[in-house]
């Protein structure tokens, strides 16, 4: 049976979380190694935006400033996410390592299958979205959880997990947010709006988005949620997770990415390093 590396479960600030994910990804591109799974939490609320998003057009900078909500650009694609009460996972692996393939959809589906098995251990019946929602509420188009894409996870028709990927030289990083609780009002307010009434937006989000707390059939906390999702990965991927720390190279790269990229306004606001 193959083994995957499981990194320590930790709560970091958003800058560090992104730097760790990218450091593991870059090292995997350079040195290979077994797939890596990581679960993490956020020290304080953060809005992350997708690699190519226009932060001024999408995020309410004034609101985020008043609430001390950090704004961080991800290395991955996709839309803006408000991270607060959630468990975040990240997977780094070779695209060619079964069951992954070079096409993106197969990777999404393979990881979604792990998440489905994990959530099932809490009695939550999640399923793959077969198609995206066509009628996204205006002015929420830049918000990840307002837009379920094909192959993302739904519970009773509402999105519970949003994921995004980066790819380079045969390797991928996929990370995603599994919502523990959902705050529709703050999620709406961190986004920029030019149209539509706030009550309408909140009502829309409350219908379109759900969370673990709402559907879990047994008690859980952040650690037990990470544990059962990890078991879902082990079962679906037929492997054993083995806890290990970041390598020295990864730690060095993390520090470099932190100071040269994720802690800079140039990257977070303009998308340049």
């Amino acid at each position: 049976m193959q083994t995957w590396r499981l990194l320590p479960f930790e709560r970091l600030d958003g800058y560090e979380n992104m730097a760790v994910d990218e450091a593991v990804f870059r090292e995997s591109v350079l040195s290979g190694g077994p797939p890596t799974l990581r679960f993490y939490l956020w020290k304080r609320p953060v809005v992350t935006i997708g690699y190519g998003q226009d932060v001024v057009a999408e995020v309410n900078l004034e609101f985020c400033g008043e609430r001390n909500i950090d704004i961080i650009r991800r290395p991955t694609g996709g839309k803006a996410v408000y991270h607060d009460a959630e468990l975040t996972y990240s997977v780094v692996a070779s695209q060619a390592r079964p069951p992954f393939k070079e096409d993106i959809v197969t990777t999404y589906r393979a990881i979604a299958a792990c998440l489905i098995l994990g959530l099932d251990r809490l009695g939550i019946a999640a399923e793959l979205a077969e198609r995206g929602l066509p009628d996204v509420k205006d002015s929420l188009e830049g918000c990840c959880f307002a837009v379920p894409y094909r192959n993302e996870l739904l519970v009773e028709g509402a999105k519970i997990c949003g994921s995004a990927q980066a790819r380079s030289r045969g390797h991928f990083l996929q990370h995603g947010s599994i919502l523990i609780d959902f705050d529709a009002l703050t999620t709406s307010r961190v986004m920029t709006h030019t149209k539509s009434d706030e009550k309408d937006r909140v009502r829309y989000l409350e219908r379109a988005v759900t969370c673990v707390r709402k559907h879990a059939k047994r008690e859980f906390n952040e650690e037990t949620l990470a544990h059962v999702i990890g078991e879902g990965f082990e079962e679906e991927m037929n492997m054993k997770l083995q806890e290990e720390e970041l390598t020295l190279n990864e730690q060095t790269l993390k520090k470099k990415l932190l100071s040269g990229k994720y802690l800079t306004q140039k990257w977070n606001l303009e998308g340049r390093t």
């Binding site: 690699y51 190519g52 996709g78 993106i104 894409y149 990927q165 790819r167 380079s168």
Partner: peptide
């Protein structure tokens, strides 16, 4: 890399 291409859920380096 010589650039990055972004699709709806992925960024990919162009090699």
């Amino acid at each position: 890399p010589f650039g990055i291409i972004e699709s709806d859920k992925t960024t990919a380096e162009l090699i």
